[in-house]
Amino acid sequence: MYASASSDIREILAKVAQGDERAFTLLFNEYYGLLERRMFYFSKSEPMAQEMALDVFLNIWISRKALQNISCFKSYLLTISRNHAFNCLKKHKRQDKRRKQWLENTDRFVREQPEDTFDYYSRIDAAVESLPPQQKKIYLLSRSDKMKQAQIAKELDIALETVKKHMVLALRNIKSRARNIAI
């Protein structure tokens, strides 16, 4: 139906504004190469340029109703592509800055960890293992199996107050051992 996009751009834009996908395909085929080269000029990255060019065409399709009021499509395309490129580059720079900051924080956290951190956790595990059998069973049901105290009381067929007392004693024993380890 359309010989080329340059033959009558106003007619093509009117068709695109009405939702004609064939007209949009023609517009896309005519201007994609130009737009991709322009985006490469800004981004210096082939994949990023392709993605930004596709984003611009997606935005054109989404806001296609506005195309009826465009007198010079090429100028319009270059302007929105420049703005989109700047927005993408700003976003990329912010993400890169956050990523570097996260890596710095992670690196600092790892460096600040005591060398015996894993030994600390193994000693806590040993403290749990050294609990009296009933305290250990109640503690593990609560922490490992994520059971509530009422569920534990029902399962072990003991009073809720007994479960609470054993949990308090178990936590007190573990904390006491943890303090001794940390000193």
Rank of each mutant, 00 (worst) to 15 (best):
N173V: 07
L160H: 15
L156Y: 06
L141K: 15
Q50W: 12
V163E: 05
A150Q: 13
L54S: 05
L26Q: 09
Y31T: 00
W102Q: 13
M52E: 01
C72K: 15
H166V: 13
F109A: 14
Q50H: 14
I80L: 11
L78P: 00
L34V: 05
N59I: 02
A66R: 09
Y121H: 14
D157Y: 14
E46M: 04
Y120N: 05
A153T: 12
E21D: 07
V163Q: 00
G19Y: 10
R38S: 12
K15T: 07
R179W: 07
L13F: 03
E155R: 15
D20E: 11
S176A: 01
Q50N: 06
F42V: 03
N59C: 11
D8R: 14
C72W: 08
K15D: 02
K164W: 05
N180S: 08
R99A: 05
F57N: 07
S122T: 09
A153F: 15
K137P: 10
V128G: 01
R82I: 02
E51A: 00
M167L: 14
R108S: 00
K154T: 13
A150N: 11
L54N: 06
K74W: 05
Q50K: 14
F118D: 14
W61P: 12
I158T: 13
S71D: 04
K165S: 06
A126S: 12
F86S: 15
G33S: 08
M48T: 12
K65P: 06
R123S: 09
K136Y: 12
A3Q: 09
L89M: 08
Q50P: 12
T106D: 10
E30S: 06
F40E: 07
S142E: 00
M167T: 11
Q18N: 02
A85T: 00
L26E: 11
F118N: 14
E155F: 08
K148E: 13
K97P: 02
Q113G: 04
Q135M: 10
